[in-house]
Design a protein around this nucleic acid. Structure first.
Lengths: 336, 336
DNA sequence: TTGAAAGCGCTAACAC
DNA sequence: GTGTTAGCGCTTTCAA
């Protein structure tokens, strides 16, 4: 245990360089030498020291992924896909949870384990373009999430506004006339909520419906409990909605449970659509209609973009903004 | 960008050691010196190189967490808690997904990014005591999951057998006489399924019920789809069950959806209990009864045990096996 | 309180 | 095809 190249070299009676060649699969090593070195490696149980290797080569083979919280299925699924995509390229992923808190997102901008991480994938919630612009850390970074964040940073996401507009129109096409939105967030924070809200308004306009402020409810964290509470509020309105667009599936699932509890039939009396396509939604009763972003495409595209930036070794002259696809998946919760 | 201690030292007109002292918050540095050094650090935008620091100190501040897949809520929640617990101690977590595949679990045993990782938290599915015993990597490792894995490795988990027994008895106490089990796995693989099955049989015995092999269904991966399929099989039996113990919540949620689809009232005709306490279950209709392991305790205990092993710096003379608590949470799916 | 210098384990340039 | 050696950026004796 704890042996190094020198130990192996000594045991095999060769130089350090030769051992290094064998370890790294360098071709020009004679078969006998290779065998002898391999024997020494096995005998000593030698493992290359990744830290020393990184220091020397300037590459660690580690990416960082910063998300609000893995407890939210969307981020868990995304993380899962990112980890697999990175593994495909021989990279490992280090996870950072920000809870969507501004101070913790700023820490991510400042740099995580400087030089221990070759690149960063970041899904910010609270940060805006201004903060992004102020970043000085030179580690390559790719943002995950909404398209249209007009910052200086590389970016992979779907067209949120268009998707939200389509979701809203979908409800209108199913005969909904009073369509609520759950998930609006206070100004200054995340682009996600703002963009989905913008899409919602456009969708209403497309259908010739008026925006009723009473039908627009906030939800700072996109959790089930907030969806439940917001739905309860909506049901107490003198003129409750007949359709609800929730800004993510968790909110929709919470709303759905609230509707069940109050005995409101879905989709007959209230139709529902979510966003994210959490697997959970397809097993709910009724199954949940949703916007399904192509998460696999987001993950692989982002990883590959990041790796290309790492390989280039220099800051991009202009940011790349890549768009992944999505689909509207109509299920039982809006079938009417 | 890309400045190092030497650059800072030169600019501040002090030695490298002094800069290092300032960076590391060493107390015996005069106020003026500290100020001057800090100014130089700010001017150059200096960030300590974590890799170099690790190589020198032998500590990276990185833990690895190896789980089957983050797409499964239990592992996502656990990962979330582990990441937070590690952060409390200044550690970052690197994620590895094994898919529960033996070959990939063996890779974890072999060592992930040797020396770049101070310790490993591992939730194996396929590996048994034999493989664990053969491990030669000296990196401290703590197993997450089932108690009673009588291997040579440190371990934190709940008493699965007792919990499963209690879940089964719970259904019997609610009047169920034909209690099925979904989630059995073929011999040789994971302790989890085996232990929950053992608990199931004990629970049946406690209630004076016979084991009916037709009511015991396999599920290799503990996913929703498998729960759905298994439930469908059970409903086609000439004498279908009146209660089902699913070895995790995902299986139970799949089963629940199947029951809904077939119009079988839950819990009146078939009562259901799961395992893991995924938040999803408490928002299902009917809400899902479950065994709720104290995941936060598992995460913090495991991280602290691992850190203590890292600090000790030597292999443990004997493995520690720590047990976290759990609770049976009775909800609507078994309320009768 | 601060400085000088060695060395963590590896890779890569250069020699032979 | 193989060996020698410098040095990645840092911490850490040891001196001063």
């Amino acid at each position: 245990m704890g042996s190094n190249l020198k130990d192996v070299a000594a045991l095999a009676g060769v130089s350090v360089k030769t051992v290094s060649n064998v370890v790294n699969g360098y071709v020009h090593v004679s078969a006998t030498t290779r065998e002898r070195v391999q024997a020494a490696i096995d005998e000593l149980g030698y493992r290359p020291n990744a830290t020393a290797r990184s220091l020397r080569s300037g590459r660690s083979g580690v990416l960082a992924l910063a998300v609000p919280e893995l407890g939210v299925p969307y981020f868990a699924e995304l993380a899962s896909l990112v980890v697999d995509a990175a593994a495909t390229h021989g990279y490992t992923v280090l996870i950072d949870q920000t809870a969507g808190a501004k101070d913790r997102e700023l820490v991510v901008l400042g740099g995580i384990r400087h030089h221990l991480v070759d690149g960063v994938l970041f899904s910010p919630l609270a940060l805006g373009v201004a903060e992004l612009r102020r970043r000085t850390d030179a580690t390559p970074m790719v943002l995950l999430g909404e398209r249209g964040l007009r910052g200086p940073t590389d970016h992979v996401g779907i067209d949120n506004i268009r998707a939200a507009r389509q979701a809203t129109r979908h409800l209108a096409e199913r005969g909904c006339r009073r369509i609520a939105a759950i998930g609006v967030q206070s100004v200054g924070t995340g682009a996600t909520a703002r963009q989905r809200y913008a899409g919602y308004r456009k969708g209403l306009a497309d259908a010739g419906l008026e925006l009723d402020p009473a039908l627009v409810l906030p939800a700072p964290r996109f959790h089930r409990a907030e969806g439940y509470a917001a739905m309860a509020t909506l049901l107490e309105l003198p003129d409750p909605p007949d359709g609800v667009f929730c800004f993510n599936d968790l909110l929709a699932l919470g709303a759905l449970r609230c509707l069940h509890t109050r005995g409101v039939p879905v989709p007959e009396q209230v139709a529902l659509i979510g966003f994210d396509d959490a697997e959970e939604g397809s097993y709910a009763t009724p199954s949940l209609s949703t916007i399904a972003p192509d998460k696999a495409a987001i993950a692989t595209t982002a990883v590959e973009l990041l790796l290309s930036r790492i390989r280039a070794g220099e800051p991009p002259d202009r940011p790349r903004r890549l768009t992944a696809g999505y689909a509207l998946v109509a299920r039982e919760s809006s079938a009417r």
